[in-house]
């Protein structure tokens, strides 16, 4: 299955970087949507099927933390794995986001290979859930 991916970050440069990592990791995407904040991300999620969300935390409007909460609370969306990509490496922020429903957390700065490894884990776990589900 070719996954469709949504990258949420207010920096176009960071979105381009993450997209390149996905492409070089051999993830053949059916679609790669991009959104600059949580509001735009929700609009994409409500109109298009998405298999994986990667989101920053600090964004204008609906931030990444709120986005994770909203996705988790929505029956239509809560099966979509969300990976947080943020500069905030504090234990309590990481724990809070994972508690809210994020399936992975990558701290910036990161090597492209670190993001690839974390995404592979999250995608495999999501496949397992689907098979069991």
């Amino acid at each position: 299955m070719k996954p469709s991916v949504l990258i949420v970050d207010d920096s176009p440069a960071m979105r381009a970087f993450i997209r390149r990592v996905l492409e070089l990791s051999g993830v053949v995407m059916s679609e790669c949507y991009q959104a600059a904040d949580g509001g735009e991300a929700l609009a994409v999620l409500r109109r298009s099927p998405v298999d994986l969300v990667l989101t920053d935390i600090n964004m204008p409007g609906i931030n990444g933390e709120e986005l994770v909460k909203l996705i988790h609370a929505d029956e239509q969306l809560n099966s979509i794995p969300v990976v947080v990509v943020s500069t905030d490496a504090t234990e309590q922020r990481v724990a809070a986001l994972l508690r809210l429903g994020a399936r992975g957390y990558v701290t910036k700065p990161f090597h492209p290979e670190t993001l690839r490894a974390d995404l592979e884990k999250v995608m495999e776990a999501a496949d397992d859930r689907r098979c069991r589900g």
Binding site: V21, L24, S25, H111, P112, E113, R116
Partner: peptide, 9 residues
């Protein structure tokens, strides 16, 4: 390598 489109195994 990044510019050439290669990740490190």
């Amino acid at each position: 390598l990044w510019k050439a489109g290669l990740l490190v195994k």
